[in-house]
Simulated assay, not measured.
Amino acid sequence: MVRCLDLIVGAVIFIIVLPIMLMIAVAIRISSPGPVFFVQKRLSQGGRTFPCFKFRTMVHNAEEVLREALSNDARMKAEWENHFKLKSDPRITPLGRFLRTTSLDELPQIINVLKGEMSLVGPRARPLYEGEGQEDNSLFQLGLTVKPGMTGLWQVSGRSKLNFTQRIELEAWYVQNRSLRLDLMILLKTAVVVIKGDGAY
């Protein structure tokens, strides 16, 4: 049932957003050097990995910029270690900031949904570094028992305002209580959150 929902709704969404994606791709190429897409290995069901697609929102030498910023700013380093996110991230381009605030950077993940690597709704597709040292964290591991989603419970419950621990607690609750009704509710709430731009950076 979930896979059918992903395929049907995912195909409709892809057709609707394709013109928007093409315009964003052109804007990225014009605004800063580097590729249109950012492809990163993410953790999936069972601890497997897959290439997750997003529009590039950062400068092309993002990792170098991050290392330098964290080494020079203790407060920023503490924020990164607590959230794995930075509110004033020096890596993000001006266009990238807009794409993140509106969540348009995540539109290419619809390709991952159609390929069967993600679901429309599920836990966050976590970067590999977030899984380091989490082997004995039962809540984190519970989130890896289902496919990651384009959206999920944490995205409609505070998004980047939540710290790492709060996010994995919400995702563990989702896995234990997931249902078609809950997924549909999250999809509807996602539309509201995206329009408001609440908690995104």
Rank of each mutant, 00 (worst) to 15 (best):
W154H: 02
W154D: 00
V156C: 02
V156L: 08
S157L: 11
S157N: 15
G158V: 01
R159Y: 10
R159T: 11
R159F: 09
R159K: 12
R159V: 09
K161G: 13
K161Q: 14
K161W: 10
K161R: 15
L162I: 00
N163V: 03
N163H: 02
F164T: 08
F164R: 06
F164E: 11
Q166A: 12
Q166W: 05
Q166N: 09
R167T: 15
R167D: 11
R167L: 12
R167K: 15
I168S: 00
I168W: 00
I168H: 00
I168L: 11
E169A: 12
E169G: 04
E169N: 09
E171V: 02
E171S: 01
A172R: 02
W173T: 10
W173K: 15
Y174K: 04
Y174C: 10
V175F: 13
Q176Y: 09
Q176H: 11
N177M: 13
N177Q: 14
N177K: 13
N177R: 13
R178I: 09
R178W: 05
S179E: 06
L180N: 06
L180P: 03
R181A: 15
R181P: 01
R181H: 11
L182R: 04
L182W: 10
D183I: 02
D183A: 04
D183F: 04
D183H: 03
L184I: 15
L184P: 03
L184M: 15
M185P: 05
M185Y: 13
M185I: 14
M185D: 14
I186W: 05
I186M: 07
I186E: 09
L187G: 10
L187A: 07
L187H: 06
L187I: 12
L188M: 12
L188W: 13
L188T: 07
K189E: 07
K189V: 06
T190I: 07
T190Q: 04
A191T: 12
A191L: 15
A191N: 06
V192S: 11
V192C: 11
